[in-house]
Design a binder for these strands. Structure first.
Length: 432
RNA sequence: GGAGGGGUGACGGAGCGGUCGAACGUGCCGGUCUUGAAAACCGGAGAUGGGGUAACUCAUCCGCGAGUUCAAAUCUCGCCCCCUCCGCCA
């Protein structure tokens, strides 16, 4: 959400800057409602001031044992008039905030202009792309042959876009989760959090999923709870309605959670395999920063996610998303894309973003600057987050990049301690 | 699910329907005292929105929402959350 005052005074600038991203915003209504809110606010305050003075006068008269009937009669009805104007004002404010909550964040100056993913700019590459004598197999073939991935039974018990992992597959998913968490908590300075997977409406609004993207979420039928689409949601909202002291910043959390997404509108995309599921595992990195350090923090955080891939020896590249490809709440986003041999291309495995004060304003997360000066007014923090990493896609990358001619898959050395001594995944004999 | 208790400022905790934005205590900041510190004493300090170059000023905020009243932290109703006991359950 934008600063209401800034929004009111810079409507045209914001509108122009957003370009295509702001095309479905009702700009004229925003303008009109902003103006109305202002006049109604002034009106209410004047009436209230009048009422207050009148009431004080009544109190004074009665204390002085003087007749107060006239003063009371004069005030009669004022309250009702105030209520009327207030109802108006409330209506205007609700309408305005509903519209304002649907305005995307403005991109940072360093974000390249563009309309879609093809305009994203590659920042760097790491690792060597493996070469294969035979065509590289897709992970679902590898996994099914090894008996560690089962999409047919997943479809039976749940439906399309679900997967069952078993044996060494299940083990490796768990190994990756533990490995990532250990690294982020042990070496990168994050505090581990295990949050609820169901959250309320207020929380979903705080990070920007609501009101605009309700269709992307799974929602419970009988209660107003949503399944989280990412740990970003509960973890960022941890400090909702709080004022943090500056010396606590930056706060860095890492959280493993399953993530649930309806994937509405992505029919036909990545229908096979583990790439796009309704439920997947992710280890998330979340940071709360002072405004002056948030871009520095974005680089750090991205580096922490990259390090996982490096330590697993998986080739990847980092791209800066262009203005047209960025998410709703971000000012700047780096995508980390891992190499998938079967597709002959890099695919997203992490997305690291700075939201500046956009989420903080929605969720009311502030900090009080240190220094003991009298002007220590609370200000909004900057929030950031990134995947570190999407676990299922990491498994995909391992299966595909380290597949062997005999159908087995070599396990990266960093995972050996987490795999109970297994260094290679061999076919499960009876194939069940 | 049943019964009861409670939600007030960073925290603890008061609050006859009318100088209550809110006593008091702790913590915090500044000062006096001290070689320094502690103690003691004095003073300061909330959030949001509007107006003003500024000193400042106006409005709102005592879980949330509605109602009663000239006037609500205080009275009434609904909702949310927390706690205790009982039942159920991993």
């Amino acid at each position: 959400m934008h600063d209401p005052k800034y929004l009111r005074d810079n409507l045209d600038f914001i509108r122009t800057s957003l370009g295509r991203r702001g095309q479905d915003v009702a700009w004229d209504a925003v303008q009109k409602l902003s103006d109305e809110r202002r006049t109604l606010t002034t009106q209410v305050e004047q009436l209230r001031s009048e009422l207050k003075k009148g009431s004080d006068e009544v109190a004074r008269l009665r204390r002085a044992k003087e007749p107060a009937e006239a003063a009371m009669a004069a005030m009669k009805g004022l309250g009702d008039r105030i209520k009327e104007v207030e109802d108006n004002l409330r209506g205007v404010e609700e309408a305005l905030s509903d519209l304002a909550l649907r305005i995307p964040n403005l991109p940072h100056q360093t974000v390249p202009l563009g309309s879609d993913a093809s305009d994203n700019v590659e920042v760097r590459r790491w690792g060597t792309i493996p070469s294969f004598t035979a065509p590289a197999k897709p992970h679902w073939e590898i996994g099914e042959a090894l008996g560690i991935l089962d999409f047919d039974r997943a479809a039976k018990i749940a439906g399309a876009r679900f997967a069952v992992l078993s044996g060494a597959g299940a083990r490796m998913e768990r190994a990756l989760i533990n490995y990532m968490l250990d690294l982020h908590t042990g070496s990168h300075g994050y505090r581990e959090v295990l949050p609820p997977l169901l959250v309320n409406r207020r929380t979903m609004t705080g990070t920007g999923q609501l009101p605009k993207f309700e269709d992307d979420l799974f929602r419970l039928r009988d209660e107003d709870y949503f399944l989280i689409p990412t740990a970003e949601v509960p973890v960022t909202n941890l400090h909702r309605e709080e004022i943090l002291s500056e010396d606590r910043l930056p706060i860095r959390y890492t959280a493993y959670t399953p993530c649930f997404r309806r994937e509405a509108g992505s029919y036909g995309k990545d229908t096979r395999g583990l790439i796009r599921l309704h439920q997947f595992n992710k280890v998330e990195l979340v940071a709360f920063s002072t405004p002056d350090r948030s871009y520095e923090e974005l680089e750090r955080l991205t580096g922490h996610a990259e390090f996982i891939l490096q330590s697993l020896n998986l080739p990847y590249r980092v791209v800066t998303l262009c203005t047209g490809d960025m998410g709703f709440s971000a000012t700047k986003t780096y995508d980390i894309e891992v190499w998938l041999p079967s597709q002959g291309q890099y695919r997203e495995i992490s997305s690291c973003s700075n939201f500046e004060s956009f989420q903080a304003r929605r969720a009311n997360i502030k900090y009080r600057p240190a220094g003991g000066k009298k002007d220590a007014k609370a200000e909004f923090v900057h929030t950031l987050n990134g995947s570190g990493l999407a676990v299922g896609r990491t498994l995909v990358a391992i299966l595909e990049n380290f597949q062997q001619p005999d159908g087995s898959v070599l396990i990266p050395e960093a995972l050996h301690p987490y795999m109970g001594g297994i260094k290679k995944i061999q076919p499960w004999p009876d194939g069940s």
